[in-house]
Design a protein around this nucleic acid. Structure first.
Lengths: 354, 354
DNA sequence: GGAAGTTGTCGAAGCGCTTCGACTGTGACA
DNA sequence: TGTCACAGTCGAAGCGCTTCGACAACTTCC
């Protein structure tokens, strides 16, 4: 119907169900072929400034957005990253949230969206997403030493990034804080101040039982550092809840009165721990030195600001996404441990002469 | 090439990049038409038991999974729910995580996956997902009184469920705990015990400034209940961190010494609050009665187990998904406030005679 | 014993996009 | 002035699935 003037409602909010504008509509609107619109959008072929302007005007006028499914089908790329998150309401939920936030933000920067997968769904979720082509890459948090969710992906070359390091990472990209080095830093700090008896108060027993990668690596680093620095050390898992913490503290002070320094790897236990120590007459730092592994904001807002190795959730999350993107570009798989940093805030001092 | 025997590798893990089996492959394998395979999968037409068996065997042998993009394109349904989550590392992160977990699990029960959207992305994220047909429905957490993210959806009929209640929900489905009734329950509990001066220690100031729906409704309910029960009440926002909490407690005890009961709507403040009260000689419950609004596990693991109205994250999350599903079935939009329940654990007792 | 269902299957037409090859001008170069 | 290269555009062929209409082959029922 050339010659017939076309009326347009402008980019008025189109009612749902009302047919969304397609690339063909835009093409008609701009007087070009659909493929030309596609090339304007993707930039994969040169387009004259004039044509581009007309197409862009059409897009704006119609309020056009490419259909994600059609795009995925035609291009074999979904622009979606699958993220396997531990959703159990465990101890370190805020930390997990920081990771998720960092990953999501970074994905958006690369024009990717995030599909949420729970680790409780197990291996099934991963293969559903991969085999159904629902995502272009997968990031797995809270990796265990022996990682069952990934068996189906071994040898497939599908882009995977692990946050944490399993026993045999093999072909998978990994990124995480260097927890072993972090533990060493904590022990060193206390040892330098003159402490010779140091205990690790760790995560809940379940975390160790499950073989959670980072907890094991921190514990191993603690034991290794204690040995090499010649200090005596003990390790205690700490359950959730005020009374759990109190009972661990009671037992520790009773059975190992020589302990003057604590390394704490359990965000949730920090606050009740400080309180329990105070009640028992071992106020921090005078009666007990404490070095923690926790996010900065938690270390800062305790009753006593804590010397702590921070958990660089933002850096790790960002790096994880970058590793995924580099695999999508076909680059080689990397494994990367971020160096720890300890911030001194005053919760560790030389031990009382005894 | 009929007559040529076909060799199959079985459901061996197919290398990524190696062409995934399609519905046509399954059809060939089973000796039927592709549409027949589709009908076996969807159950939308009757299929003989024999044919079904052959098709299912083919699916198993090839390890076939329908391609999500193709399916979305052809059926105009993605089997994905968009979930807008507040990812700021705010106070009540564990609670948010509970909601997310409940929603995700319930979505999976309905064979839906969850696309994670951050509220920091604002309205853009919502329209990207809706207009790009990336999801069939959207659930929005952490709704504000004046909800800007949803303007683009008004009048479109796109399925939306809000967790929380904005000033003008209009056409949108809503579900949440009845925070006003919850506040009333807390005040009633203290009033029945004989308290006549009650303070609300609430969320961080930012939460109120932002107009967060649930915080405002709780505060309004508190004020209304205080008035109607004839008790005097005051309201204090409480910032994050130990020292913030201490300073609020100091000021409260100094400026309103008549207060004998506290209603606390701030999970993160609970532990430092109890500690601060003890330090000031107002041990709970003898020197100060406390009723909280928080998840059960938090109430239980405090130094003093708390009388608390629980936050039924699981129920709300599940209900939100159900409301989304019912909209997808074309049913009417509902708005629903869940009744609060108070569990007595001993942190509130009659005030000292004074 | 033919009309009128049922039941089970097939073929083909899309869904909205990307991408490949082909085609038309145009300017550069010899 | 003929030849090449290249910028700019188009048309058509899929991507893998769903779904509609058609159509055999059986049943049923008067």
């Amino acid at each position: 119907m050339s010659g017939t003037p076309t009326l347009h409602a402008g980019a008025a909010p189109l009612a749902y169900g009302e047919r969304m504008p397609t690339i063909a509509d835009v093409a008609r609107e701009a007087g070009v072929a659909p493929s030309t619109v596609s090339y304007v959008l993707s930039g994969k072929r040169t387009i004259s400034a004039e044509t581009r302007a007309r197409v862009e005007a059409g897009i704006a006028r119609l309020g056009y957005r490419p259909n994600a499914g059609a795009r995925a089908l035609a291009s074999a790329s979904t622009k979606i990253v699958g993220l396997v998150v531990p959703l159990r309401t465990d101890v370190n939920v805020p930390v997990i949230m920081q990771f998720v936030a960092a990953i999501t933000v970074e994905c958006r920067r690369h024009d990717y969206d995030v599909l949420l997968l729970t680790r409780d769904e197990g291996p099934e979720a991963v293969s559903r997403v991969v085999q159904g082509s629902m995502a272009d890459a997968i990031i797995v948090m809270d990796v265990e030493a022996d990682e069952p969710r990934l068996e189906s992906l071994r040898g497939t070359g599908f882009p995977v990034v692990l946050i944490g390091v399993p026993d045999s990472p093999g072909e998978f990209a990994c990124v995480d804080l260097d927890f072993a080095a972090a533990a060493q830093l904590c022990v060193e700090r206390l040892a330098e101040l003159g402490h010779t008896h140091i205990s690790l108060l760790g995560a809940t027993p379940a975390v160790y039982d499950r073989g959670t990668s980072y907890a094991l690596r921190f514990r191993a680093g603690f034991e290794e550092a204690s040995r090499s620095l010649g200090v005596s050390g003990s390790v205690h898992a700490v359950g959730a809840g005020h009374h759990e913490v109190e009972s661990v503290v009671d037992r520790l002070l009773r059975e190992e009165p020589e302990v003057t320094g604590l390394v704490v790897h359990n965000e949730a236990a920090l606050s009740p721990l400080l309180q329990a120590l105070r009640v028992c007459g071992h106020e921090v730092p005078g009666g007990m030195s404490v070095v923690a592994l926790c996010p900065d904001d938690i270390a800062e807002t305790q009753a006593v600001p804590l010397d702590a190795v921070s958990i660089p959730a933002n850096d790790v999350g960002r790096r994880a996404v970058e590793l995924a993107m580099s695999q999508l570009r076909g680059e080689a798989v990397e494994q990367e441990l971020l160096p720890p940093h300890l911030t001194v805030r005053g919760s560790a001092v030389p031990p009382r002469r005894g």
